[in-house]
Design a protein around this nucleic acid. Structure first.
Lengths: 145, 145
DNA sequence: CTCTCCACTTGCATTTTGCAAGTAATTTGA
DNA sequence: TCAAATTACTTGCAAAATGCAAGTGGAGAG
């Protein structure tokens, strides 16, 4: 999937980020995991952007390889699968939220309320913490079922 | 370049961001403009990732259409071209820096010094302001030549 | 024991990419 | 002054990635 020489993708942090986030589908899967509480193949498939099943499988594998997701049996039904965010992907939340704030300010068609950007600017840490708490809530609930 | 229906890409801020940044080459061009002071076709072409010329032309046009860059004659030499960052792309800096911090912490092959993430964590605003000042310096110098 | 659900895989047509070469408008150097 | 170089692209084509539809194999339900 990455045809460049290895050295082309090492060293520079922006280039490293581009290797993961610089792909529409990886980016949106990260959104689904970090912001929308999605954990299963079917949930990812149901996102409105309409990812196709081969691409979804490919990207889930890529994100797992990159250490962004773990693939585990679903606690609710051992025969199905859950993808959980790792610390590495949770640590990406501030960057993701920062991009959301930017998009909210510059996409004239945004449906996000202006209050979102406002509350972020008055208390960025609190906004991030709120999303983090949501993630913990979702995964706690799932793991203890 | 975007085959989805229009409604598929409106509304959600993350999706909006994915439409721009969720492309390796756009992402790296933004880095070159915002972080490395690059402004000309040749400079972009010279980046170590090796973008090909047709893709570069395509992405510069895309970024111009999206309001991220302006295409202007080079003040130093009227026959050549400069691409300047707009306010919209400069506003993207905090998100970009946030991704760099994340990458610095999670890419074991990073060449960025740990001091970068540290100085960001003690004074995020100052770090951003430093990059902003660099951009102004570059563009001031260019425009007044 | 069949039927459905789930998480994929496969095949194939279409699209995008990468690479090499070419071009048109300057501009530089001898 | 005039050939050679530079700049910002465009074009053609082969190779790779994508989208779409259909298929597969295993677990669980009825």
């Amino acid at each position: 999937m990455n045809s460049g020489r290895k050295t082309d993708w090492n060293g520079c942090p922006t280039r490293y980020a581009a290797g993961i986030v610089g792909d529409k589908w990886c980016f949106l899967l990260l959104r689904d995991v970090l912001l929308h509480g999605k954990r299963t193949y079917r949930e990812f498939l149901a996102s409105p952007e309409g990812i196709s099943t081969n691409i979804l499988a490919n990207r889930l594998a890529k994100l797992e390889t990159l250490g962004m997701l773990t693939r585990e049996p679903d606690p609710r039904k051992a025969s199905s699968i859950c993808y959980f965010p790792t610390k590495k992907s949770k640590d990406f939340l501030p960057a993701l939220v920062s991009m959301m704030v930017w998009a909210t300010q510059h996409d004239e068609a945004t449906e996000a309320p202006a209050s979102f950007a406002e509350s972020y600017s008055t208390d960025p840490g609190g906004t991030i913490a709120w999303y983090e708490a949501e993630i913990e809530r979702v995964d706690q609930a799932l793991r203890s079922s």
